[in-house]
């Protein structure tokens, strides 16, 4: 068996309606590629990627879930162990954005209280098909005190960044727990969202 080649292990989860691009986002992040022909995810899938943050090797164990209602009993059992959750919607699909509220409620019900959350508005390369403005994404994120980014798995926009910011937030949290002097807490970020680097500008809309 291989010996431990990392300092920390973070478990992340991708959720959101079916078809918003979760599998593509994960594939872009883990294999740096895009194919438009993924078969639908049934149940749950799994990928690993190791990143380096502040001199620490962090292994990300990322679970990709099926979006359809039928699979919720199967997928919500993974919420509990997750340290970070990415909620994905599709900027060309109004319904998937409206459902973000539903997914947030799911997190409240099933995940750990201190789980780090991030909302992603995916497919931001499809400017001519956009129906959800960036402002609406930002507003809902502000309302719930969550990080937000627009991404494109296809054009490789903000994918890497989304994962490393989520990982960084978890790292802050774990560091904060270990050491109370460390004031670089997530809560602080949340109060300053406007200036926070989490609010990166992607596709100018």
């Amino acid at each position: 068996m291989s010996k431990k080649t990392y300092d920390l292990l973070f478990k992340l989860l991708l959720i959101g309606d079916s078809g918003v691009g979760k599998t593509c986002i994960l594939f872009r992040f883990s294999d740096d590629a895009f194919t438009s022909t993924f078969i639908s995810t049934i149940g749950i899938d799994f990928k690993i990627k190791t990143v380096e943050l502040r001199g620490k090797k962090i292994k990300l164990q990322i679970w990709d879930t099926a979006g359809q209602e039928r699979f919720h009993t199967i997928t919500t059992s993974y919420y509990r162990g997750a340290m970070g959750i990415m909620l994905v919607y599709d900027i060309t699909n109004e319904k998937s954005f409206e459902n973000i509220i539903k997914w947030l409620r799911n997190i409240d019900e099933h995940a750990n209280e201190d789980v780090e959350r991030m909302i992603l508005g995916n497919k931001c390369d499809m400017t001519d098909k956009r129906v959800v403005s960036k402002e609406r994404g930002e507003n809902i994120a502000r309302e719930y005190g969550i990080r937000f980014m627009e991404t494109s798995a296809k054009a490789n926009i903000n994918i890497e960044k989304a994962f490393s910011e989520l990982a960084e937030a978890i790292l802050d949290q774990t560091a904060g727990k270990e050491n109370n002097d460390n004031q670089e807490r997530v809560v602080v970020d949340r109060k300053n969202q406007e200036k926070s680097p989490a609010y990166s500008r992607c596709c100018t809309s």
Binding site: I39, I42, G43, I44, F46, I74, S77
Partner: peptide, 16 residues
């Protein structure tokens, strides 16, 4: 857990 793999195996009769 079997949910990680057998969920798909069984519900799709191994077609994937």
């Amino acid at each position: 857990l079997p949910q990680y793999y057998a969920f798909r195996w069984i519900s799709l009769i191994l077609s994937q």
